[in-house]
């Protein structure tokens, strides 16, 4: 659930701290409540989603793609299958894509999902991890 911590090089004896930790915690919390309230009040969910993006913008932090992709691009409401969005697997030119359709604003979003290709993101690959901070 938590947003991934960015790796930071710390020197010697200094206590290692993640840059912008309290903002990451805040974004994490907002993500949770956005997910909680989505089925009862999608407008509020979109409001919290909007806030996540603006907090990240203000603090110049990156949102982890897994979390970023769960929000609708247009209205920033969280996408949950059969609650606020519908998911379909589509076939186009022999390659499969996952299509998410937001029920609130009607925006469609495609993600590639082909078995033959490696669609892993850079962050999911083992060489992306430089340092682990607890």
């Amino acid at each position: 659930m938590a947003s991934k911590e960015p790796e930071k090089k710390a020197d010697g004896n200094r206590v290692k701290k993640v840059h912008g930790n309290d903002s990451f915690q805040r974004m994490n919390y907002l993500y949770q409540i956005s997910k909680h309230i989505a089925d009862k009040n999608p407008a509020l969910s979109a409001y919290y989603g909007n806030l996540i993006v603006s907090v990240a913008k203000k603090n110049v932090l990156k949102i982890h793609p897994d979390i970023k992709r769960q929000f609708c691009k247009k209205c920033r409401c969280i996408a949950i299958h059969k609650v606020t969005a519908t998911m379909k697997v589509k076939r186009k030119n022999k390659s499969k894509t996952i299509q998410w359709t937001c029920d609130i604003c009607g925006t469609k979003r495609n993600f590639p999902a082909n078995e033959k290709h490696d669609h892993r993101l850079w962050l999911e690959k083992p060489e992306a991890v430089l340092e682990v901070i607890n």
Binding site: A43, A46, Y47, K73, K74, C75, R76, I104, C105, T107
Partner: peptide, 14 residues
């Protein structure tokens, strides 16, 4: 894909 404008948000009821 742009963000919703203020008027569109208002019409949805944000």
């Amino acid at each position: 894909v742009r963000c919703l404008t203020r008027q569109e948000k208002k019409s949805i009821g944000f």
